[in-house]
Design a protein around this nucleic acid. Structure first.
Lengths: 211, 211
DNA sequence: CACTAACTTGAGGAGGTCCTCAACTTTCTG
DNA sequence: CAGAAAGTTGAGGACCTCCTCAAGTTAGTG
Protein backbone atom coordinates (compact mmCIF):
# COMPACT_ATOMS: atom_id res chain seq x y z
CA UNK A 1 0.00 0.00 0.00
CA UNK A 2 1.23 3.54 -0.72
CA UNK A 3 2.27 5.74 2.21
CA UNK A 4 -0.53 8.12 1.21
CA UNK A 5 -3.61 7.36 -0.78
CA UNK A 6 -2.73 10.30 -3.02
CA UNK A 7 0.68 11.84 -2.67
CA UNK A 8 0.79 15.06 -0.73
CA UNK A 9 2.17 18.22 -2.22
CA UNK A 10 5.63 19.07 -0.95
CA UNK A 11 4.52 21.94 1.29
CA UNK A 12 1.61 19.93 2.63
CA UNK A 13 3.86 17.05 3.58
CA UNK A 14 6.20 19.46 5.34
CA UNK A 15 3.36 20.97 7.29
CA UNK A 16 2.02 17.59 8.20
CA UNK A 17 5.38 16.60 9.62
CA UNK A 18 5.70 19.82 11.56
CA UNK A 19 2.25 19.26 12.99
CA UNK A 20 3.04 15.73 14.07
CA UNK A 21 6.27 16.77 15.73
CA UNK A 22 4.50 19.59 17.50
CA UNK A 23 1.68 17.32 18.57
CA UNK A 24 4.08 14.79 20.06
CA UNK A 25 5.72 17.59 21.98
CA UNK A 26 2.58 19.34 23.17
CA UNK A 27 0.66 16.18 24.06
CA UNK A 28 3.76 14.89 25.82
CA UNK A 29 4.02 18.05 27.84
CA UNK A 30 0.43 18.92 28.56
CA UNK A 31 -1.51 15.71 28.09
CA UNK A 32 -4.05 14.72 25.49
CA UNK A 33 -6.41 17.54 26.33
CA UNK A 34 -3.96 20.20 25.27
CA UNK A 35 -5.53 22.88 23.04
CA UNK A 36 -5.12 22.18 19.36
CA UNK A 37 -4.34 25.82 18.73
CA UNK A 38 -1.20 25.37 20.78
CA UNK A 39 -0.11 22.55 18.52
CA UNK A 40 -0.71 24.64 15.43
CA UNK A 41 1.15 27.57 16.96
CA UNK A 42 4.20 25.53 17.83
CA UNK A 43 4.19 24.03 14.36
CA UNK A 44 4.08 27.57 12.94
CA UNK A 45 1.07 26.70 10.90
CA UNK A 46 -2.44 28.05 10.97
CA UNK A 47 -5.16 26.32 12.87
CA UNK A 48 -6.98 25.82 9.60
CA UNK A 49 -4.11 23.75 8.28
CA UNK A 50 -4.20 21.58 11.33
CA UNK A 51 -7.87 20.86 10.77
CA UNK A 52 -7.13 20.29 7.14
CA UNK A 53 -4.74 17.46 7.94
CA UNK A 54 -6.45 16.14 11.04
CA UNK A 55 -10.17 16.84 11.05
CA UNK A 56 -10.58 15.52 14.58
CA UNK A 57 -8.44 15.20 17.67
CA UNK A 58 -8.75 11.46 17.35
CA UNK A 59 -7.07 11.59 13.93
CA UNK A 60 -4.11 13.24 15.58
CA UNK A 61 -4.03 10.56 18.27
CA UNK A 62 -4.17 7.87 15.63
CA UNK A 63 -1.24 9.41 13.83
CA UNK A 64 0.91 9.67 16.92
CA UNK A 65 0.03 7.18 19.60
CA UNK A 66 0.37 3.84 17.84
CA UNK A 67 4.06 4.50 17.30
CA UNK A 68 4.45 5.26 20.99
CA UNK A 69 2.51 2.20 21.90
CA UNK A 70 4.92 0.20 19.81
CA UNK A 71 7.56 1.08 22.38
CA UNK A 72 5.37 -0.71 24.83
CA UNK A 73 5.31 -3.74 22.62
CA UNK A 74 9.08 -3.77 22.64
CA UNK A 75 9.04 -3.79 26.41
CA UNK A 76 6.56 -6.62 26.54
CA UNK A 77 8.63 -8.67 24.14
CA UNK A 78 11.76 -8.12 26.17
CA UNK A 79 9.88 -9.08 29.31
CA UNK A 80 8.66 -12.27 27.68
CA UNK A 81 12.25 -13.04 26.76
CA UNK A 82 13.27 -12.99 30.41
CA UNK A 83 13.82 -16.60 31.44
CA UNK A 84 12.27 -15.94 34.86
CA UNK A 85 8.52 -15.40 34.45
CA UNK A 86 8.20 -13.35 37.62
CA UNK A 87 11.18 -11.14 36.86
CA UNK A 88 9.79 -10.69 33.38
CA UNK A 89 6.45 -9.62 34.79
CA UNK A 90 7.99 -7.11 37.16
CA UNK A 91 10.19 -5.83 34.40
CA UNK A 92 7.15 -5.34 32.26
CA UNK A 93 5.44 -3.28 34.92
CA UNK A 94 8.50 -1.11 35.46
CA UNK A 95 8.95 -0.61 31.74
CA UNK A 96 5.33 0.25 31.23
CA UNK A 97 5.20 2.85 33.94
CA UNK A 98 8.58 4.25 33.07
CA UNK A 99 7.22 4.87 29.62
CA UNK A 100 4.18 6.58 31.07
CA UNK A 101 6.36 8.66 33.33
CA UNK A 102 8.37 9.90 30.38
CA UNK A 103 5.41 10.88 28.27
CA UNK A 104 2.47 12.67 29.75
CA UNK A 105 0.48 12.06 26.59
CA UNK A 106 1.02 8.34 26.70
CA UNK A 107 0.18 8.35 30.38
CA UNK A 108 -3.14 10.00 29.56
CA UNK A 109 -3.65 7.65 26.68
CA UNK A 110 -3.29 4.53 28.76
CA UNK A 111 -5.72 5.80 31.37
CA UNK A 112 -8.24 6.69 28.71
CA UNK A 113 -10.59 4.75 26.50
CA UNK A 114 -10.53 4.95 22.73
CA UNK A 115 -13.09 4.05 20.10
CA UNK A 116 -12.18 0.54 19.11
CA UNK A 117 -12.31 1.29 15.42
CA UNK A 118 -9.45 3.75 15.88
CA UNK A 119 -5.80 2.95 15.28
CA UNK A 120 -5.10 3.65 18.95
CA UNK A 121 -7.80 1.26 20.00
CA UNK A 122 -6.26 -1.48 17.88
CA UNK A 123 -2.78 -0.84 19.25
CA UNK A 124 -4.11 -1.03 22.80
CA UNK A 125 -5.85 -4.29 22.16
CA UNK A 126 -2.73 -5.83 20.76
CA UNK A 127 -0.71 -4.54 23.69
CA UNK A 128 -3.13 -6.11 26.10
CA UNK A 129 -3.04 -9.42 24.33
CA UNK A 130 0.71 -9.51 24.85
CA UNK A 131 0.42 -8.48 28.47
CA UNK A 132 -2.01 -11.31 28.96
CA UNK A 133 0.64 -13.81 27.92
CA UNK A 134 3.07 -12.33 30.39
CA UNK A 135 0.61 -12.44 33.23
CA UNK A 136 -0.46 -15.97 32.41
CA UNK A 137 3.15 -17.11 32.32
CA UNK A 138 3.97 -15.47 35.63
CA UNK A 139 0.89 -16.90 37.24
CA UNK A 140 1.60 -20.42 36.03
CA UNK A 141 5.13 -20.20 37.37
CA UNK A 142 3.52 -19.92 40.77
CA UNK A 143 5.23 -16.65 41.63
CA UNK A 144 2.40 -14.29 40.66
CA UNK A 145 -0.67 -14.74 42.82
CA UNK A 146 -3.29 -16.90 41.19
CA UNK A 147 -6.12 -14.40 41.52
CA UNK A 148 -4.45 -11.59 39.60
CA UNK A 149 -6.07 -11.19 36.20
CA UNK A 150 -5.38 -9.10 33.15
CA UNK A 151 -8.34 -6.97 34.13
CA UNK A 152 -6.59 -6.10 37.32
CA UNK A 153 -3.80 -4.65 35.26
CA UNK A 154 -6.21 -2.06 33.92
CA UNK A 155 -6.99 -0.95 37.42
CA UNK A 156 -3.32 -0.81 38.26
CA UNK A 157 -2.71 1.34 35.23
CA UNK A 158 -5.34 3.81 36.33
CA UNK A 159 -3.79 3.95 39.74
CA UNK A 160 -0.25 4.42 38.53
CA UNK A 161 -1.21 6.97 35.93
CA UNK A 162 -2.45 9.20 38.69
CA UNK A 163 0.58 8.69 40.89
CA UNK A 164 2.76 9.58 37.93
CA UNK A 165 0.70 12.61 37.03
CA UNK A 166 0.70 14.03 40.53
CA UNK A 167 4.32 13.44 41.39
CA UNK A 168 5.88 14.02 37.99
CA UNK A 169 7.19 17.47 38.63
CA UNK A 170 8.24 17.42 42.21
CA UNK A 171 9.32 13.83 42.84
CA UNK A 172 9.38 11.90 39.59
CA UNK A 173 10.54 8.66 41.22
CA UNK A 174 7.55 8.33 43.49
CA UNK A 175 5.84 5.86 41.21
CA UNK A 176 8.70 3.40 41.68
CA UNK A 177 8.18 3.30 45.39
CA UNK A 178 4.46 2.91 45.09
CA UNK A 179 4.89 0.16 42.53
CA UNK A 180 7.23 -1.67 44.89
CA UNK A 181 4.51 -1.80 47.54
CA UNK A 182 1.99 -3.06 45.03
CA UNK A 183 4.36 -5.64 43.58
CA UNK A 184 4.94 -7.05 47.02
CA UNK A 185 1.21 -7.58 47.21
CA UNK A 186 1.17 -9.43 43.91
CA UNK A 187 3.56 -12.17 44.95
CA UNK A 188 1.89 -15.51 45.42
CA UNK A 189 3.14 -15.83 48.98
CA UNK A 190 1.64 -12.46 49.92
CA UNK A 191 -1.82 -13.36 48.72
CA UNK A 192 -4.78 -13.32 51.04
CA UNK A 193 -8.25 -14.18 49.77
CA UNK A 194 -10.06 -11.30 48.09
CA UNK A 195 -13.79 -10.94 48.35
CA UNK A 196 -14.44 -8.55 45.52
CA UNK A 197 -14.53 -10.33 42.17
CA UNK A 198 -12.71 -8.92 39.15
CA UNK A 199 -14.58 -6.91 36.54
CA UNK A 200 -17.17 -8.89 34.64
CA UNK A 201 -17.05 -9.08 30.87
CA UNK A 202 -19.90 -6.65 30.64
CA UNK A 203 -18.22 -4.12 32.87
CA UNK A 204 -14.96 -4.47 30.99
CA UNK A 205 -16.79 -3.93 27.75
CA UNK A 206 -18.40 -0.75 29.01
CA UNK A 207 -15.15 0.54 30.41
CA UNK A 208 -13.21 -0.06 27.26
CA UNK A 209 -15.83 1.23 24.87
CA UNK A 210 -16.93 3.93 27.22
CA UNK A 211 -16.26 7.64 27.26
CA UNK B 1 -18.01 33.53 68.88
CA UNK B 2 -21.21 34.26 66.93
CA UNK B 3 -22.19 31.95 64.07
CA UNK B 4 -21.82 34.94 61.74
CA UNK B 5 -19.76 38.04 62.28
CA UNK B 6 -22.85 40.10 61.47
CA UNK B 7 -26.19 38.35 61.31
CA UNK B 8 -27.49 37.70 57.83
CA UNK B 9 -30.80 38.99 56.67
CA UNK B 10 -33.47 36.27 56.54
CA UNK B 11 -33.54 35.96 52.76
CA UNK B 12 -29.76 36.01 52.58
CA UNK B 13 -29.49 33.17 55.07
CA UNK B 14 -32.01 31.19 53.08
CA UNK B 15 -30.09 31.70 49.88
CA UNK B 16 -26.83 30.82 51.52
CA UNK B 17 -28.28 27.53 52.69
CA UNK B 18 -29.70 26.77 49.29
CA UNK B 19 -26.32 27.48 47.76
CA UNK B 20 -24.51 25.20 50.17
CA UNK B 21 -26.95 22.37 49.61
CA UNK B 22 -26.64 22.80 45.89
CA UNK B 23 -22.86 22.94 46.07
CA UNK B 24 -22.67 19.72 48.07
CA UNK B 25 -24.84 18.08 45.47
CA UNK B 26 -23.11 19.43 42.38
CA UNK B 27 -19.56 18.97 43.66
CA UNK B 28 -20.50 15.49 44.80
CA UNK B 29 -21.82 14.64 41.40
CA UNK B 30 -19.41 16.38 39.07
CA UNK B 31 -16.29 16.98 41.11
CA UNK B 32 -14.74 20.17 42.38
CA UNK B 33 -14.32 21.66 38.93
CA UNK B 34 -18.04 21.79 38.30
CA UNK B 35 -19.20 25.15 36.90
CA UNK B 36 -20.36 27.57 39.55
CA UNK B 37 -23.23 28.63 37.33
CA UNK B 38 -24.61 25.12 37.68
CA UNK B 39 -24.58 25.47 41.45
CA UNK B 40 -26.38 28.78 41.27
CA UNK B 41 -28.93 27.36 38.85
CA UNK B 42 -29.72 24.36 41.04
CA UNK B 43 -30.05 26.64 44.04
CA UNK B 44 -32.49 28.78 42.02
CA UNK B 45 -30.45 31.83 42.76
CA UNK B 46 -28.62 34.19 40.46
CA UNK B 47 -24.94 33.78 39.81
CA UNK B 48 -24.40 37.21 41.32
CA UNK B 49 -25.80 36.00 44.61
CA UNK B 50 -23.44 33.08 44.60
CA UNK B 51 -20.50 35.42 44.20
CA UNK B 52 -21.96 37.64 46.82
CA UNK B 53 -21.82 34.88 49.41
CA UNK B 54 -18.73 33.08 48.16
CA UNK B 55 -16.37 35.40 46.31
CA UNK B 56 -14.09 32.54 45.30
CA UNK B 57 -14.44 28.84 44.63
CA UNK B 58 -12.17 28.24 47.58
CA UNK B 59 -14.66 29.97 49.88
CA UNK B 60 -17.23 27.45 48.77
CA UNK B 61 -14.83 24.60 49.45
CA UNK B 62 -14.08 25.97 52.86
CA UNK B 63 -17.77 26.11 53.67
CA UNK B 64 -18.45 22.56 52.58
CA UNK B 65 -15.44 20.31 52.75
CA UNK B 66 -14.38 20.56 56.40
CA UNK B 67 -17.68 19.04 57.45
CA UNK B 68 -17.13 16.18 55.04
CA UNK B 69 -13.61 15.76 56.25
CA UNK B 70 -14.98 15.46 59.74
CA UNK B 71 -16.55 12.21 58.64
CA UNK B 72 -13.05 11.08 57.96
CA UNK B 73 -12.03 11.99 61.44
CA UNK B 74 -14.82 9.80 62.76
CA UNK B 75 -13.43 6.93 60.76
CA UNK B 76 -9.94 7.46 62.03
CA UNK B 77 -11.14 7.57 65.59
CA UNK B 78 -13.05 4.35 65.17
CA UNK B 79 -10.02 2.75 63.61
CA UNK B 80 -7.87 3.83 66.51
CA UNK B 81 -10.40 2.27 68.83
CA UNK B 82 -9.93 -1.13 67.22
CA UNK B 83 -7.90 -3.25 69.64
CA UNK B 84 -5.94 -4.79 66.77
CA UNK B 85 -3.62 -2.19 65.27
CA UNK B 86 -3.46 -3.87 61.87
CA UNK B 87 -7.19 -4.40 61.62
CA UNK B 88 -7.63 -0.79 62.63
CA UNK B 89 -5.28 0.33 59.91
CA UNK B 90 -7.03 -1.70 57.22
CA UNK B 91 -10.36 -0.48 58.50
CA UNK B 92 -9.13 3.06 58.20
CA UNK B 93 -8.12 2.56 54.58
CA UNK B 94 -11.45 0.96 53.70
CA UNK B 95 -13.35 3.70 55.44
CA UNK B 96 -11.34 6.42 53.79
CA UNK B 97 -11.80 5.10 50.28
CA UNK B 98 -15.40 4.22 50.86
CA UNK B 99 -15.95 7.83 51.74
CA UNK B 100 -14.19 8.92 48.60
CA UNK B 101 -16.20 6.51 46.53
CA UNK B 102 -19.43 7.96 47.86
CA UNK B 103 -18.54 11.55 47.18
CA UNK B 104 -16.90 12.58 43.98
CA UNK B 105 -16.16 16.00 45.42
CA UNK B 106 -14.38 14.60 48.44
CA UNK B 107 -12.48 12.24 46.19
CA UNK B 108 -11.25 15.21 44.21
CA UNK B 109 -10.51 17.09 47.36
CA UNK B 110 -8.27 14.42 48.80
CA UNK B 111 -6.29 14.14 45.58
CA UNK B 112 -5.87 17.89 45.43
CA UNK B 113 -3.79 20.41 47.26
CA UNK B 114 -5.26 23.31 49.15
CA UNK B 115 -3.77 26.57 50.32
CA UNK B 116 -2.75 25.85 53.87
CA UNK B 117 -4.36 28.99 55.22
CA UNK B 118 -7.74 27.67 54.08
CA UNK B 119 -10.18 25.83 56.28
CA UNK B 120 -9.84 22.79 54.06
CA UNK B 121 -6.08 22.86 54.40
CA UNK B 122 -6.41 22.89 58.17
CA UNK B 123 -8.89 20.01 58.14
CA UNK B 124 -6.56 17.98 55.96
CA UNK B 125 -3.62 18.58 58.23
CA UNK B 126 -5.54 17.47 61.25
CA UNK B 127 -6.74 14.39 59.39
CA UNK B 128 -3.20 13.49 58.50
CA UNK B 129 -1.99 13.91 62.02
CA UNK B 130 -4.54 11.32 63.12
CA UNK B 131 -3.66 8.99 60.30
CA UNK B 132 -0.07 9.21 61.38
CA UNK B 133 -0.96 7.81 64.79
CA UNK B 134 -2.76 4.92 63.17
CA UNK B 135 0.13 4.10 60.90
CA UNK B 136 2.65 4.36 63.69
CA UNK B 137 0.62 2.06 65.87
CA UNK B 138 0.20 -0.53 63.11
CA UNK B 139 3.88 -0.39 62.32
CA UNK B 140 4.93 -0.83 65.90
CA UNK B 141 2.66 -3.82 66.24
CA UNK B 142 4.88 -5.46 63.65
CA UNK B 143 2.03 -6.20 61.27
CA UNK B 144 2.44 -3.19 58.98
CA UNK B 145 5.74 -3.20 57.10
CA UNK B 146 8.34 -1.02 58.73
CA UNK B 147 9.13 1.03 55.66
CA UNK B 148 5.61 2.32 55.10
CA UNK B 149 5.41 5.97 56.03
CA UNK B 150 2.65 8.50 56.28
CA UNK B 151 3.94 10.04 53.07
CA UNK B 152 3.25 6.80 51.31
CA UNK B 153 -0.36 7.20 52.28
CA UNK B 154 -0.53 10.31 50.15
CA UNK B 155 0.64 8.37 47.14
CA UNK B 156 -1.87 5.66 47.87
CA UNK B 157 -4.61 8.24 48.05
CA UNK B 158 -3.70 9.57 44.63
CA UNK B 159 -3.75 6.08 43.24
CA UNK B 160 -7.05 5.12 44.76
CA UNK B 161 -8.72 8.37 43.83
CA UNK B 162 -8.13 7.58 40.20
CA UNK B 163 -9.32 3.99 40.50
CA UNK B 164 -12.46 5.26 42.13
CA UNK B 165 -12.98 7.97 39.56
CA UNK B 166 -12.59 5.66 36.59
CA UNK B 167 -14.63 2.76 37.85
CA UNK B 168 -17.32 4.63 39.77
CA UNK B 169 -20.04 4.34 37.21
CA UNK B 170 -19.53 0.96 35.70
CA UNK B 171 -18.06 -1.12 38.52
CA UNK B 172 -18.11 0.83 41.76
CA UNK B 173 -16.56 -1.98 43.80
CA UNK B 174 -13.37 -2.10 41.81
CA UNK B 175 -11.48 -0.05 44.35
CA UNK B 176 -12.02 -2.72 46.98
CA UNK B 177 -10.30 -5.32 44.89
CA UNK B 178 -7.40 -3.04 44.08
CA UNK B 179 -7.05 -2.08 47.70
CA UNK B 180 -6.91 -5.74 48.66
CA UNK B 181 -3.89 -6.25 46.41
CA UNK B 182 -2.19 -3.22 47.85
CA UNK B 183 -2.95 -4.17 51.44
CA UNK B 184 -1.38 -7.55 50.89
CA UNK B 185 1.77 -5.70 49.90
CA UNK B 186 1.70 -3.64 53.07
CA UNK B 187 1.85 -6.57 55.47
CA UNK B 188 5.17 -6.89 57.19
CA UNK B 189 5.67 -10.45 56.00
CA UNK B 190 5.19 -9.38 52.37
CA UNK B 191 7.85 -6.72 52.50
CA UNK B 192 10.83 -6.80 50.20
CA UNK B 193 13.44 -4.07 50.35
CA UNK B 194 12.56 -0.93 48.39
CA UNK B 195 15.21 1.11 46.69
CA UNK B 196 13.34 4.32 46.10
CA UNK B 197 13.25 6.46 49.23
CA UNK B 198 10.04 8.14 50.38
CA UNK B 199 9.36 11.77 49.58
CA UNK B 200 11.77 14.17 51.20
CA UNK B 201 10.50 16.97 53.40
CA UNK B 202 11.15 19.45 50.65
CA UNK B 203 9.19 17.45 48.10
CA UNK B 204 6.35 16.94 50.50
CA UNK B 205 6.28 20.65 51.19
CA UNK B 206 6.07 21.47 47.51
CA UNK B 207 3.40 18.87 46.89
CA UNK B 208 1.22 20.02 49.71
CA UNK B 209 1.56 23.73 49.07
CA UNK B 210 1.60 23.25 45.34
CA UNK B 211 -1.06 23.85 42.70
C1' DC C 1 5.31 30.38 -18.19
C1' DA C 2 0.68 29.99 -17.27
C1' DC C 3 -2.87 27.65 -15.38
C1' DT C 4 -5.26 24.56 -12.28
C1' DA C 5 -5.71 21.84 -8.47
C1' DA C 6 -3.96 21.54 -3.96
C1' DC C 7 -3.15 23.78 0.01
C1' DT C 8 -2.97 27.61 3.57
C1' DT C 9 -4.79 31.34 6.04
C1' DG C 10 -6.99 33.72 9.89
C1' DA C 11 -11.04 36.21 11.06
C1' DG C 12 -15.04 35.07 13.30
C1' DG C 13 -19.30 32.42 14.91
C1' DA C 14 -20.62 29.12 18.50
C1' DG C 15 -20.47 27.62 23.01
C1' DG C 16 -18.58 27.53 27.51
C1' DT C 17 -16.95 29.50 32.07
C1' DC C 18 -15.52 33.28 34.98
C1' DC C 19 -16.59 37.42 37.29
C1' DT C 20 -18.48 42.43 37.81
C1' DC C 21 -21.59 46.06 38.62
C1' DA C 22 -25.41 49.35 38.20
C1' DA C 23 -30.14 49.03 38.80
C1' DC C 24 -33.62 46.94 41.28
C1' DT C 25 -36.02 44.50 45.42
C1' DT C 26 -36.46 42.97 50.07
C1' DT C 27 -35.80 43.04 54.98
C1' DC C 28 -35.32 45.31 59.11
C1' DT C 29 -35.37 49.18 62.32
C1' DG C 30 -37.21 53.01 64.70
C1' DC D 1 -44.88 52.51 57.49
C1' DA D 2 -41.00 55.03 55.56
C1' DG D 3 -36.25 55.15 54.83
C1' DA D 4 -31.76 53.07 54.98
C1' DA D 5 -29.16 49.19 54.68
C1' DA D 6 -28.70 44.69 52.98
C1' DG D 7 -29.18 41.69 49.39
C1' DT D 8 -30.44 40.14 44.55
C1' DT D 9 -30.41 40.22 39.73
C1' DG D 10 -28.83 39.14 35.03
C1' DA D 11 -26.90 41.31 31.10
C1' DG D 12 -22.48 41.67 29.44
C1' DG D 13 -17.24 42.00 29.11
C1' DA D 14 -13.18 39.01 29.24
C1' DC D 15 -11.21 34.90 28.13
C1' DC D 16 -10.78 30.32 26.21
C1' DT D 17 -11.38 26.57 22.96
C1' DC D 18 -13.56 24.55 19.09
C1' DC D 19 -14.33 24.49 14.25
C1' DT D 20 -15.59 26.57 9.42
C1' DC D 21 -15.04 28.76 5.14
C1' DA D 22 -14.25 32.32 1.62
C1' DA D 23 -10.38 34.43 -0.08
C1' DG D 24 -5.63 34.15 -1.00
C1' DT D 25 -1.19 31.51 -2.02
C1' DT D 26 1.74 27.82 -3.84
C1' DA D 27 3.33 23.63 -6.14
C1' DG D 28 3.43 20.98 -9.95
C1' DT D 29 2.06 19.97 -14.86
C1' DG D 30 1.91 20.50 -19.87
Amino acid sequence: MPPQARRLRADAARNRDKLLASAVHVFGERGLDAPLEEIARQAKVSIGTLYNHFPTRQDLFDAILPERLAALERITTEALADPDPWDGFVRFLSGLFELQARDHGLNDALARRFPDDSAVGAACRSGFAQAELLIERARQSGRLRADFETRDLITLMWAMSQVIRESMEVAPQTWRRHLAFVVDGLRAEAAHPIETPPLTDGQLEKLIRGR
